[in-house]
Design a protein around this nucleic acid. Structure first.
Lengths: 134, 134
DNA sequence: CAAAGCATGATATTTCTTTAACAAAATTAA
DNA sequence: TTAATTTTGTTAAAGAAATATCATGCTTTG
């Protein structure tokens, strides 16, 4: 019998979702490939792109554009307003920060819909979290 | 006698500089082609890219990266800190705006070298300037 | 104004990111 | 477990931006 078009659960698809959930930051397709490869050795770049496309259409993934860089992707629940990019490592992070009345402070004629900070510099490694009973 | 490697003055090169000087905003190579073509009909895209490269090396031009867009270029004397992009028209503008102590307000671990606002929305046409005796 | 050599325009090529094609493998429903 | 259908990995190919090539045209210098 012919089935309706439905999505299947695969190791690869689960791995892609897992690494995005754990990263909590925007990942490039290449970063996703490297991280997913730990869970599913041999996973191919086409699988990454294929699932990015599908997940974005489903609304499970959201894209993040960065100046002069390929797009990154993040789970919507991890998305924040502003961006920080460590240009050495290519690691991108998002963060929130209130900029009160920022839209009203723009020059005449600039009616902004979105306003985000884009910062570049160096990311210091956060102190290791102590595990309970660790 | 063999000449030292020197730069020559051409219609094309002058036109490229002129349009950048008049625009006072970041232009994409395609925008530059269209605008320069008014001054020098038939100018080719290769000439645009060639001169962009040369002028950037000379420090006469400075590049401006925009998320999800090809690079724009601006004369250094027109460069400002922040960016506004009209996504409809593709027109980019720069502006200054003080964000006091912004670097100190970033989350722990983010040591920023550069902090710029990136705004998208709609650009309203500025009111026409009246010329003296106009 | 003539020779030397840089610049131009048209086009081919490169580079990088993303998508397509397809046989084989994996998943699902019965 | 079987049969149907989706997914995967490999590899080719598409798209877009930027660069290289090269015959011809311009600038410059003497």
């Amino acid at each position: 019998m012919k089935q309706a078009n439905t999505f299947r659960e695969t190791k690869q698809r689960n791995a892609i979702h897992t690494i995005l959930d754990e990263a909590k930051r925007p990942l490039s397709p290449q970063e996703m490939l490297a991280l997913a490869d730990v869970h599913v050795p041999g996973i191919g770049i086409a699988t990454i792109y294929r699932n990015i496309k599908i997940m974005v259409e489903q609304g499970v993934l959201s894209s993040v554009d960065i100046p002069g860089e390929p797009s990154r992707f993040i789970l919507p629940q991890h998305r924040k307003t502003h961006l920080f990019l460590d240009k050495e490592s290519g690691v991108a992070m998002m963060f929130d920060l209130d900029l009160p009345g920022i839209k009203r402070r723009l020059p005449r004629g600039m009616k902004a819909q979105d306003v985000t900070l884009f910062c570049t510099g160096t990311l210091q490694a956060p102190p290791k979290k102590k595990k309970a009973k660790g």
